[in-house]
Amino acid sequence: MANLWHIFLAFFIPGIVGYGGGPASIPLIENEVVQHYHWLTVNEFSRVLALGNSLPGPIATKMAGYIGFEQGNILGLVIGLLATVAPSILLMIVLLKLLDRFKKSPKVKRLTLLIRPTIAVLLAVMTYEFLRSSFVEGGAFQTVFLIIVSFVLLERLKIHPAFVILGSLCYGAIFMAS
């Protein structure tokens, strides 16, 4: 069981530096829970992310809620959620008047912009880790096949991610059972 303080930190940091909404904080959360605290393996994290992506609602809170729950039960869930949402909401309410003056300043707009390449790098590293893990655990043939099929379904035919993930789960249960 992880220390509740660690749960708080693991989600507080992505919440406070993740500019650009929930998806920007995915690699930051991975950095904390997989690389730093070792609560999950790359594979386990991808399972949480896959399920999170196939359910509706904001992604950052779904991940914080579940990982918090796994590490520290209900209390962990509450702390993971609070650490994710509370700081930015408090800032938004407290700094409202102040921010009103700055929201149209080019500086504020550039904050999100300048951070995008860094988030892109973090996402690319995560993609690589997922692919490597898939080659090792699932085999090269299945990995390449699933990549091609899911890419065509998601990006060319624009099938909803929930259905593609559901489809891959069925495929795995039937053809990749060990």
Partner: peptide, 8 residues
């Protein structure tokens, strides 16, 4: 295992 490449 099957879901990992899709998430990638």
């Amino acid at each position: 295992h099957a879901v990992v490449p899709v998430v990638a």
